[in-house]
Amino acid sequence: MRNIWKYILILPGLAGLLLFMVIPLTGTIASTFWENGRFTVNGYLEYMQDPYFLNILWVTLRTSLITTLVCSILGFPTAYFISKTQPRVKMLLLLLSIFPLLTSPVVRSFSWMVILGESGLLNNLLTFLGIAGPLDLLYTQSAVTIGLIHLFLPLSIITLVGVMDNISEDVTQAAESLGARRSTIFWQILLPLSIPGLLTGSILVFVGSFTAYTTPALLGGRERVISTFLYQNAMTLNDWQLASIVATIMIVVSFTVIGLMNWAADKIAVKGGKLSG
């Protein structure tokens, strides 16, 4: 009897997911294979041969992968530092690092516009110091990447701190007492033991930047990414069929990349790379 109650507890969540995710998603995906009452894959074939769309897909993928990589590289040492501090300082630093998450993406993007614009803070500084003339920073993929890194770095840091907190200092000291240099400790102990956090963080950052709308829309100018392209199809061109196809492609690409990340993480962290035990 008690077991039944346990399952009843998950019913509300399950119902919500079914109603608001599984059904509409299945509908959306199904609709892409249906045209004038007949099954078809023409929509996909057209997209796959359209250089304009392929370019958008490639640019989005590249931007999100660069964002993911940079967030991991910047997040790793930061998280390591935070995990080594005293509990009180740690709370403060964690709070500071998630602070960007507490402001709206719109506000943040506008701030970057102020900094990166043609007569913005950065360009003024560069011109003043005579390093370079006004650069075209705003409305490029670089601006989008910077905005996304700013947006998602906290996710990287939080997930990594969570994992690094579980790496006992004794383990690194054991390696040290056995003669390992700092670099060896990093590559052979810290990094492999941080893979689970690195993976979770990377998935969050990648999915977030791959599907981000506000930041690319505000900082990317006329350059399209896949989510702004989807919006354009649905809202401006009112072509829901095409928008659904784009959405489906986004889902497939996301899952493929997540799968690849999982596979790579498995390769790097050899068997038994669990943190407990």
Binding site: Q173, A174, E176, G179, A269, G277
Partner: peptide, 18 residues
């Protein structure tokens, strides 16, 4: 530490879990 050639046995074993 890493130049001392001393063996250290920890209370919680401190094995490399991976």
């Amino acid at each position: 530490v890493n130049k001392r050639n001393f063996g250290f046995v920890f209370q919680n074993y401190a094995l490399f879990p991976h």
